[in-house]
Amino acid sequence: MKKIIETQGLTRTFGAFTAVDAISFDVYEGEIFGFLGANGAGKTTAMKMLSGLLAPSGGSATVVGFDVKTQSEDIKKQIGYMSQRFSLYEDLTVLENIHLFGSIYGLKKAELAQKAEVLLEQLEFTDQRNTLVGDLPLGWKQKLSFSVAMLHEPRLVFLDEPTGGVDPITRRQFWEMIYAAAHKGATVFVTTHYMDEAEYCDRVSIMVDGKIAALDTPHNLKRQFNAPDMNDVFLQLAATSVARAGF
């Protein structure tokens, strides 16, 4: 299988604090890769380095064939990104946001207009096209945010806690959208706090204190830790961190 992300000893420090401590892992083209960890474990920092938002302090990584240190601008053209904080423009309408981000990624006018229609149709947003994004419920915003991140059909998409604070029905719909994108060939790199969502991933890594403590398919992880579900696997690993911190 072809690797789309390769990291070797990737490290990021903030002063004396090491947020990401020499992590090495690969992500394969077309998989849904779950990136788990407790709050402050270093997930978001690692993700920001991989998406070219943050310069690494050490180690190396290539994403879609480009070096994150020197070719971050090339990476940016090939990836989609959806942030933990909802970040479309609240004072622009649904359609205006779609047009803006479509144009940023260089979509041509006619292509963009056609894609916008398909997108609105799929989200059942046709009536909401002229609603200000700030007036939409959170779950709708998240779905729109994901669709906008996928607008330019990136080979790889980073989702940072995309379903935080969203109701179970919308979460279910959201994962259907993720599957649909993966089915079309996109690689999905997703962080989450919900362990049931971890079960939907092809492979899962669990970060503890800036290091990758485990990485395998959910099935193998459960067997390795002799756990009934991913929740139990996560708790066992997180407990070692808490014990080490002296609590």
Partner: peptide, 13 residues
């Protein structure tokens, strides 16, 4: 402050 900058920074603008 709004967080929209992250989306801009991660794009090729």
């Amino acid at each position: 402050e709004m967080g929209t900058m992250e989306l801009i920074l991660v794009s090729p603008v």
